[in-house]
Computed example of a mutant assay.
Amino acid sequence: MTYTCPVCGFDELDEPAYNEFNDPSFEICSCCRFQFGDDDDVEIEEGLFMQREETHAMYRQAWIAKGTPIFMPEYYPKQFQLDGAVTKEHLIEQLKNIRIFEDQ
């Protein structure tokens, strides 16, 4: 069984990003490089942390702006790669896994 990255929609994670107790897996997504339990631990000011969904959206936006580089291309389907990045066509399909770019 595989799981979906809530940041980029890649559906080949070995573990769920967060378990039933909402604890992070600390797995690093081989597509977008987001590490659950580390990259989502953003302190806005002392003792006040950004919501996970906000960190996911912020990281996703920055990853897309960088051109969707694939962190570990050897673990990502070659037919959906172009010059070390996710192809635009597949990115749209992948983001549908997390309800972004859903068909209208």
Results as ranks from 00 to 15, higher is better:
residue 16 P to N: 06
residue 80 F to L: 02
residue 98 I to D: 08
residue 88 K to H: 08
residue 1 M to D: 11
residue 104 Q to E: 14
residue 102 E to I: 10
residue 92 I to Y: 04
residue 35 Q to G: 12
residue 46 E to H: 12
residue 24 P to C: 10
residue 41 D to W: 12
residue 70 I to S: 08
residue 51 Q to E: 15
residue 28 I to M: 09
residue 20 E to L: 12
residue 99 R to S: 14
residue 54 E to W: 02
residue 81 Q to N: 06
residue 48 L to P: 00
residue 14 D to V: 02
residue 4 T to R: 08
residue 91 L to E: 06
residue 103 D to V: 08
residue 36 F to H: 03
residue 65 A to K: 15
residue 34 F to P: 00
residue 16 P to D: 04
residue 43 E to G: 08
residue 18 Y to M: 05
residue 54 E to D: 15
residue 36 F to L: 03
residue 49 F to N: 01
residue 46 E to L: 11
residue 4 T to V: 15
residue 31 C to I: 02
residue 91 L to M: 12
residue 62 A to R: 10
residue 41 D to M: 12
residue 95 L to M: 10
residue 47 G to I: 07
residue 88 K to T: 11
residue 22 N to P: 00
residue 69 P to K: 14
residue 101 F to Q: 09
residue 94 Q to W: 03
residue 99 R to F: 10
residue 6 P to E: 03
residue 60 R to C: 06
residue 91 L to N: 11
residue 18 Y to D: 03
residue 82 L to Y: 09
residue 36 F to P: 00
residue 9 G to Y: 01
residue 52 R to Q: 08
residue 56 H to P: 01
residue 22 N to S: 12
residue 55 T to C: 13
residue 11 D to V: 03
residue 10 F to T: 01
residue 10 F to H: 07
residue 18 Y to E: 05
residue 102 E to A: 09
residue 67 G to Y: 04
residue 38 D to W: 13
residue 5 C to V: 06
residue 64 I to S: 09
residue 39 D to M: 03
residue 95 L to D: 04
